[in-house]
């Protein structure tokens, strides 16, 4: 009994530690005063204002656009890559995977700088395209890493059976492999999307020409004071991601059950 009590207190304390700043943010997004410390009464004006602020709405637009484009492209390239890498010879496979791990293991700041030097060297003006390329690049490894383990646990004879029954390799991949790895593709996509949404360091070094995402805008604001509208935007984003995660979790659970039940 005592032990259980101590455990509860421990969980509670860590939860307070993790949620205190987030709750402060959410609470202050309803604060009528501009101060970060004093409560000036309840208001919804920051939520009303947030879309009218050109700086915030522009960076929100770029954040979502880049996250969406980068995660979709990375998911396509990464899924094909995973299927291809899976059937490669062990040596080639390990060389490719080691290079793939580089952006994951490397420090963000080094990756960001490497991109910046590269874009400047090839004469690509820093801006939307450079940031998008950078995001796709750091997303792909996470897609591959979400899918590869599943591929090695698949029954390889179903694919061969499809070929024997006259399906073209493309069709066999589409009808046999893709449905089986779908939950992992979704996981990879979501992981890529959220990483992109939250990225600061790599975006910071690869953007220019007035293209900024929310993180960069927030970083610039920390020097001259955070606009309360940002708290509102982040609260909305946080809740949307939370809802998205819950829906996807439910959906992929059901999906897995259905597939299992039908014995596909």
């Amino acid at each position: 009994m005592v032990k259980r009590g101590i455990e509860r207190i421990y969980l509670g304390l860590i939860m307070v530690f993790l949620y205190a700043p987030i709750l402060t943010l959410i609470v202050f997004s309803f604060n009528d005063s501009k101060s970060r410390a004093k409560w000036g009464g309840f208001t919804l004006k920051w939520y009303k204002n947030m879309l009218h602020d050109p700086e915030i709405s522009k960076s929100l637009y770029y954040t979502l656009l880049i996250a969406l484009l980068a995660s979709v492209i990375a998911t396509i390239i990464g899924t094909l890559a995973a299927i291809g890498i899976h059937v490669m010879k062990k040596k080639t496979k390990s060389v490719i995977l080691n290079v793939t791990y580089l952006p994951v293991l490397n420090a963000d700041i080094v990756t960001g700088i490497a991109f910046m030097l590269f874009f400047v060297a090839i004469g690509l003006r820093l801006g939307f395209t450079s940031m998008l390329i950078a995001h796709i690049t750091f997303n792909i490894p996470y897609v591959i890493l979400s899918i590869l383990p599943k591929l090695s646990s698949l029954n390889k004879f179903t694919y061969e059976a499809a070929l024997d029954l006259g399906a073209s390799p493309m069709k066999a991949i589409r009808k046999v492999i893709i449905p089986e790895i779908m939950p992992n593709i979704i996981t990879g996509f979501l992981l890529a999307f959220t990483l992109s949404l939250d990225d600061f360091v790599i975006s910071y070094f690869t953007t220019g020409s007035g293209v900024t995402n929310l993180s960069i805008t927030i970083y610039t604001m920390t020097r001259r004071g955070i606009k309360p509208e940002i708290n509102a935007v982040s609260t909305v984003l946080f809740l949307s991601v939370l809802i998205l995660l819950l829906i996807i979790n439910k959906r992929s659970d059901r999906h897995a059950k259905k597939l299992g039940g039908m014995n596909v």
Binding site: L80, A81, G84, I85, P103, I133, I136, T137, I140
Partner: peptide
């Protein structure tokens, strides 16, 4: 099926390896 990885391999060399060489 290996060839499906080609777009990625090209991407990898240009955008992972070359920037590190830079």
């Amino acid at each position: 099926r290996k060839w499906l990885a080609t777009p990625y391999l090209i991407w990898m060399v240009i955008f992972i390896v070359v920037p590190l060489v830079m």
